[in-house]
Design a protein around this nucleic acid. Structure first.
Lengths: 222, 222
DNA sequence: CTTCAACAACAAGAATGCGCATGGGGTCCG
DNA sequence: CGGACCCCATGCGCATTCTTGTTGTTGAAG
C-alpha cells in the first residue's frame, strides 16, 4: 500500500512518514500544497494524509482539485483542534476522515488502516482467502492456522492482493503501489516475489492471467 | 516506561522524580501547568502524575485539554485531603486514579504501577512470557525460577516488552519510552541492550522483525 | 505440423543494507 | 582509585532484495 503525506511542518512530516513506514506502507511525502497536489494527481495512492494549513496551495483547495479531477483515493485530514469550521468545509470538499492536532500517532495509523480497508470494501482488520489469513493490526500471516514468516516485501504484496481479491492486478499496478516514485520499471522483481509468495502460501492461490497480471481468490475464470 | 510528573512544589517534585526513577521509570517533570500540558501533548508517556494546584494553568484544565486532544495515557491525580470536591471534577475530567496529600511514596508507586499495568491490559503485578517472570513490585526477574540480575536499562527494556507482548515494537518506540527527551536517535544503543538482554534471558524470546523492530512472546511470525 | 515470438517461472549470483558483537571511552558510584 | 554501567563507533555476517540468464509455456503465423 502506498501513502502520500502532505504536511509542511518538516518535523511532523518526518514523524508521520516514519510511523507509516514502520507500519509497512510505502510512503511519499510533500511539504507544500503544489507538490502534494501534483503527486496526488500523478501517482496512484491508496490513501493520503493531508494537512490543511499548507504553503503555496491550501489543503482544502488541493483536496477540491483532486476530487474535481476524479481522484477518489481516501483522504485523512489533519486539522487544528480549534479550527472546527474546517471540518465542515472538509466534508464538503470530499474528505473521508479527520484527526485533530495534536494527535496520537497510533490514532492516525488506525484511521489510515481503516480508510485503506474501507476503500477496498473490507470491514474487518483480518483479510482471508482460502487458508490464508492476514491480521492487519499485528502484521501477522497464517496458513491453515500455522504462522508463516514473510519478509516485508512479501507481506506488502500479499496485503495488496488480499485487499483487491478477485480483481486482476497488472504488474505495473503492483510496482506502482509497492514501490515509491523512483523505481526501475523494467525488472522482473514482482514476478520473483510472486513466486516466493506462492512457495510460502501455496501456489494455487495466486492465479496468473497471461498478458494481464495476477488474480488472487475468486475461483472464477477468464 | 516513561512517566511525566507535574507538581509545582519543587521539593515534592524532586522526591517524586527520584522515587519513580529508583523504581525503574524514565521520568520527565514540569513545575507548572503550561509546561506540563505541553510535554503531555508532545511526548508519549505511559503515565502521568498530576498535581491539581498549579501555576499558569490549573491541573484540571491541563487534564481536560489532554483528554479533549485525544490523549489517553493514564493520569494519577494528587489532591489535598480536604479538597474532596476535586475528586469529583477529576473524574469528570478523565482522571484514572487519586492519591490524597500528604501521601506515602509507596502508595504513589503502587498506583502508578497499577495504572501502567492496566493501560497495557494486564491484571497482575507479575508479567510472564515463557520461562521469564518479572515481578513489578519487587522489580525482580527470574528465568525458570532462578533469579537473573539485570541492570536498570535492561530491566526497563524487558518491562516495556513484557507490557506489550505480541506487538511489534519499533526501535523509535523503544527509544521514546526508554529515554527522556534529549537522546541521540541515531545510535545502536537499543540493539546493544536487546543483545545483552537476550544473553541473559535466552535468545529465543525476543524476536527480530527485520526492518520493523522487535517482538516478544507470541510465537507467531510475519 | 513446425517454427517463432512473447511472456512467465525459476534458479542462482551480486549487491545492498540491516542487525549484532565487540571494545573503547566516559561517568557515576562506592 | 576501582568497578559497574552506559553510550557510541567500527566492522563483520547474513537476510533480503534485485538482476541476470535460462528454461518452460502459450499462441499465432508460416
Amino acid at each position: 500500500m502506498r501513502i502520500l503525506v502532505v504536511e509542511d511542518d518538516t518535523d511532523l512530516n518526518r514523524q508521520l512518514v516514519t510511523a507509516l513506514e514502520e507500519a509497512g506502507y510505502v510512503v511519499d511525502s510533500a511539504t507544500d500544497g503544489e507538490d502534494g497536489h501534483y503527486l496526488g494527481d500523478t501517482e496512484p495512492y491508496d490513501a493520503v494524509v493531508l494537512d490543511l494549513g499548507l504553503p503555496t496551495l491550501d489543503g482544502l483547495s488541493v483536496l477540491e482539485n483532486w476530487r474535481r479531477d476524479g481522484r477518489t483515493m481516501p483522504v485523512l485530514i489533519l486539522t487544528a483542534r480549534d479550527r472546527w469550521s474546517d471540518k465542515v468545509s472538509g466534508i464538503d470538499a470530499g474528505a473521508d476522515d479527520y484527526v485533530a492536532k495534536p494527535f496520537h500517532m497510533e490514532e492516525v495509523l488506525a484511521r489510515v488502516r481503516a480508510l485503506v480497508r474501507r476503500a477496498a470494501g473490507h470491514a474487518s482488520n483480518e483479510l482471508t482467502c482460502g487458508a490464508v489469513r492476514l491480521d492487519l493490526r499485528a502484521g501477522r500471516v497464517t496458513v491453515d492456522g500455522s504462522p508463516v514468516k514473510l519478509t516485508s516485501h512479501e507481506y506488502r504484496l500479499l496485503s495488496y492482493l488480499l485487499h483487491h481479491q478477485g480483481k486482476v492486478i497488472s504488474r505495473t499496478e503492483l510496482t506502482e503501489h509497492l514501490y515509491d516514485q523512483d523505481f526501475d520499471r523494467d525488472s522482473n522483481t514482482v514476478e520473483v516475489f510472486v513466486g516466493r509468495l506462492r512457495k510460502k502460501i501455496g501456489s494455487d492461490l495466486i492465479e496468473t492471467i497471461r498478458g494481464l497480471g495476477y488474480r488472487l481468490g475468486a475461483a472464477g475464470d477468464s
